[in-house]
């Protein structure tokens, strides 16, 4: 098999938010630093999909937006097609936008409520390409055919479209510029089950036909497993496990990954309607950034930490677990990886 080219590589990406005091606020409120993305590294091969999973607040969307430079990164490097993009000026980066696009979680994103579908697509086609009117019409027709949308929808305003149709227009808009790499941010959330399947099938179909690469961000573990070649699991801004989709789903090494997947009920276990084993889903509540943590950030919810009688290394501030290779292209950040 021919070695595939690496299309995207993210190295030590960090994004810190400073939640500070307003210019006129009084009192002693101290400025807090929130690590939305904390030292994240991964790469993506051409025509492949990397799934990025995690709960809300894990920073997965921030990673996607930082790659597209919609949010400035705090530090780190991002290579697209071997070219570092974070150091480029806005003008230098602009032409790259035709190669990398985003499918936003919000179905209405990018759809100007006062413009018809035709005008929306026409604008997208023309942003990076000089084309004559008939060429644009041709291109729009091709796009509609690619995303399987009826031509009669061209005359509609966004609010007249159903959720599935809006999603298709959103994808068509991203393809209109000729993107090769898509950040798909929760592309199925907010859609009905039957429509979710359509969208996932469409994305896979487009990948086969056009050779696209995806960064597939989702909290729907099944969908991620279905579409991704590799999966990265994020917890509070950090990748805690990274590996082939099948390994992550069926042989997780990080306790968090296991609790994520065990929260899913497979069809088989639906038959025995027994509650999942206690402790497997971790502790209650969502982590708040306000609480300072030391060492492993999953420790407060970690069942292994409890089982191991709270070993000191897990909460030792200087030894936050780093990703390390456990073989078979599988990496995990845990002091006590599961076997």
């Amino acid at each position: 098999m021919k070695m595939k080219k690496t299309i995207l590589e993210v190295v030590n990406l960090k994004k810190y938010y400073h939640q500070g005091r307003g210019p006129f606020s009084l009192g002693r409120g101290r400025q807090r630093t929130i690590p939305a993305v904390d030292d994240v590294s991964f790469y993506l091969k051409e025509n492949e999909t990397l799934g990025l999973v995690g709960e809300s607040g894990s920073g997965k969307t921030t990673v996607g937006k930082t790659i597209l430079r919609l949010i400035p990164a705090t530090s780190g490097e991002i290579f697209f097609d071997g070219k570092e993009i974070l150091s480029l000026s806005a003008g230098e980066f602009h032409p790259l936008r035709k190669d990398m696009q985003m499918v936003f979680q919000d179905l209405d994103a990018g759809l100007n409520p006062k413009m018809r579908v035709q005008a929306i697509l026409k604008e997208a086609v023309r942003v990076h390409h000089q084309m004559s009117s008939p060429e644009v019409d041709d291109r729009i027709r091709t796009l509609l055919e690619q995303v399987n949308l009826k031509e009669s929808k061209l005359g509609n305003f966004p609010h007249e479209l159903s959720g599935g149709e809006k999603r298709r227009v959103g994808i068509a808009r991203a393809l209109a510029v000729g993107a090769r790499f898509l950040v798909a941010d929760e592309p199925t959330s907010g859609l009905d089950v039957s429509i979710q399947a359509q969208v996932v099938n469409l994305l896979k179909d487009l990948q086969d036909r056009l050779g696209l690469s995806y960064l597939f961000i989702s909290h729907d573990l099944r969908m991620v497993e279905l579409v991704s070649h590799k999966v990265a699991v994020m917890y509070l801004g950090r990748i805690v496990e990274l590996g082939l989709a099948g390994h992550i789903a069926h042989a997780p090494r990080h306790p968090y990954t296991r609790s994520l997947w065990s929260s899913l009920v497979t069809k088989e276990s639906r038959e025995v309607s027994a509650p999942t084993s206690p402790g497997s889903s971790g502790d209650w509540g969502v982590f708040d950034f306000e609480r300072s943590f030391s060492g492993c950030r999953f420790a407060p919810r970690c069942p292994v930490y409890q089982e191991q009688a709270r070993p000191d290394i897990c909460t030792d501030p200087v030894s936050e677990p780093q990703l390390y290779d456990v073989g078979r292209a599988h990496k995990v950040a845990c002091h006590f990886p599961l076997s």
Binding site: L68, L70, R97, Q101, F104, D106, D108, A109, G110, A124
Partner: peptide
């Protein structure tokens, strides 16, 4: 509605 972000992303 993420409109402006999407417009910037489009170029």
């Amino acid at each position: 509605k993420n409109f402006i972000e999407a417009a910037v992303a489009l170029g």
